[in-house]
Nucleic acid binder design. Structure first.
Length: 487
RNA sequence: GGCGCGUUCGUCUAGUGGUUAGGACACAGCCCUCUCAAGGCUGGUGCACGGGUUCGACUCCCGUACGCGCUGCCA
């Protein structure tokens, strides 16, 4: 038996694997030569092969990410293959969620739907001829038997060692038919079973590394049996740990947060989610949390992947999202925030004003979904007044008087800017003998209807003098206590 | 049930025989402050359990428990 692993192995006929390459695993020499040839190896081809369920699972997204990282790290290719053997309706529609999710995460593929490629088609439903051909090959070799109309693959009944790049060497005993029955590869109605078509496609598409969820680890020896029966060298395998819920239970599609789309809808940024996903099972090992994707590509190695399942920590993802928003450029923030503002039907036609508003709101935003709430009052005079804020601030009888005084001081300002506004307010506070906050709070509620928001001075500057004075006037009229009637 | 994988703070992780077991999120307190955040500082919480091996185990081996996966004519 020759060492069937590794691109270099085939180029080295002198490598006598009969003694060192047990179970067709990598021999030591091959490993080293293979590792040397590892960087920027165009022979490296990986694939992401989701079933078109109508949504992209967060675990699937990470599997896609790890495949993408591996391909990019080595200068290899990523293939996207849609495994639609079982789902006969609306495949394209259901697959759209997958494309959208991958694109949102910035994970491009080198062959597959929309892109094409030499080794297509990339929908299993369109590959029947290929499967028929390989089935015939197996039948001719006597590997197939019929059972109640279905076709089964007769297991060779041997031990199969899986040499997993993440999990290490694992010996599976497949000799007992009672515990490892012969797998079905085709149903009586002619449709194909996953194990068979998956292997055929990986062979046909020249996949060098199969990086997939650990739920497939136990299936792998069966797949290797198929490779051998077909006379093909099995690819390298890397089974990555699963993503669980916070409580350690398996994340099923019904769990909140299982669908990538929920993160998109809630206003997480793609860079933050992608970064968070990178850290689930993989680590740069230097305590970095926010790490640029280019840096991850540079550092990513399958050997650094954990073997233990990871719980999805929404708190941390949320924190990371805030970090990304705080540190991203204003242009990027505007780009990301715009659809959320449009969806909230906020009039953002004034680009310069929008830019000014977002520049001061940016530091407050943790979730893009919150942008409308934090900025709506900038764009309309019909903003709501938070009853609690009004009660707290204008509950004090002096508040209205102070606001009136502030309004008069502000009216005198010629160059309406942050510095002038601040000086004006603080000077007045001193004059009235009150705290700065005693003016700031009424001003804030009057101008925005809220008790929280960006720096007041910046906020007022952006709104403009005219708008601010008008809002003060209306607030004074609305919240000033009625004049006392003395008897 | 059988087989496989896993087990370091609540969570994500660093750590491969000798560390005061490090970082991050979350949490608590303090500082700063016009609010809310952010930021800074401080703090508590962890090697699942039991046996080995060793001068010495979080680290290596075995077992137990627990978790997860596979065991489909789902993928």
């Amino acid at each position: 038996m020759i060492c069937s692993r590794g691109p270099m192995a085939r180029l080295l006929p002198t490598t006598n694997g009969s003694q060192i390459c047990v179970y067709s695993n990598l021999c030591f020499i091959c490993v080293n030569l293979w590792l040397i040839s590892f960087s920027m190896n165009p022979e490296i081809r990986v694939r992401f092969a989701p079933s078109p369920t109508g949504y992209l699972h967060i675990g699937g997204a990470r599997t896609a990410l790890f495949n993408w990282l591996f391909a990019r790290h080595h200068g290899g290719k990523l293939v996207l293959r849609i495994e639609d053997t079982d789902i006969k309706r609306n495949t394209e529609e259901a697959a759209a969620a997958i494309y959208e999710g991958l694109e949102w995460l910035g994970l491009n593929w080198d062959a597959g739907p929309h892109i094409g490629g030499d080794l297509g088609p990339y929908f299993q439903s369109q590959r029947t001829d290929i499967y028929e051909r390989h089935l015939k090959q197996l039948q001719d070799a006597g590997h197939i038997f019929e059972d109640a109309g279905a076709l089964r693959f007769r297991s060779p009944r041997e031990h199969v060692v899986v040499n997993d790049l993440v999990c290490g060497k694992i010996d599976f005993d497949l000799t007992n038919p009672g515990t490892h029955p012969d797998m079905t590869i085709r149903r009586p109605d002619g449709s194909w079973i996953f194990h068979f078509v998956n292997v055929i496609d990986d062979i046909e598409m020249k996949i060098s590394h199969v990086i997939r969820g650990e739920d497939h680890l136990s299936n792998t020896p069966k797949h290797i049996e198929l490779y051998r029966a077909l006379g093909a060298a099995p690819p390298h395998f890397a089974h990555i740990p699963l993503i669980l819920n916070r409580d350690g239970s398996k994340m099923s599609k019904r769990d909140a947060g299982a669908r990538l789309a929920t993160y998109i809808e809630q206003g997480y940024t793609p860079e933050a989610v992608r970064n968070y996903l990178c850290l689930l099972g993989w680590s740069p090992k230097d305590n970095r949390e926010k790490i640029d994707i280019d840096e991850v590509v540079k550092l990513f190695e399958l050997e650094k992947i954990n073997r233990r399942n990871a719980a999805f920590d929404l708190d941390k993802c949320f924190w990371l999202n805030g970090q990304y928003i705080a540190q991203m450029s204003l242009d990027r923030f505007i780009e990301l925030a715009r659809p959320f503002l449009e969806k909230a039907k906020i009039d953002i036609s004034d680009q310069a004003y929008l830019r000014a508003v977002l520049s001061i709101a940016k530091e407050k935003i943790k979730l893009l979904n919150d942008v409308p709430e934090w900025t709506r009052y900038f764009f309309t005079e019909q903003y709501e007044f938070d009853p609690t804020a009004v009660e707290k601030v204008f509950g004090k009888p002096e508040a209205a008087e102070r606001l009136i005084a502030l309004r008069d001081e502000f009216a005198k300002i010629e160059n309406w800017n942050v510095e002038k506004i601040e000086i004006s307010l603080k000077t007045l506070a001193q004059k009235l003998g009150c705290k700065t906050g005693d003016l700031v709070h009424p001003a804030r509620v009057a101008a925005s209807g809220r008790s929280v928001g960006p720096s007041l001075y910046h906020m007022l500057e952006v709104m403009g003098k005219k708008r601010v004075l008008a809002r003060f006037d209306r607030a004074i009229e609305k919240f000033a206590p009625p004049p006392r009637v003395s008897s």
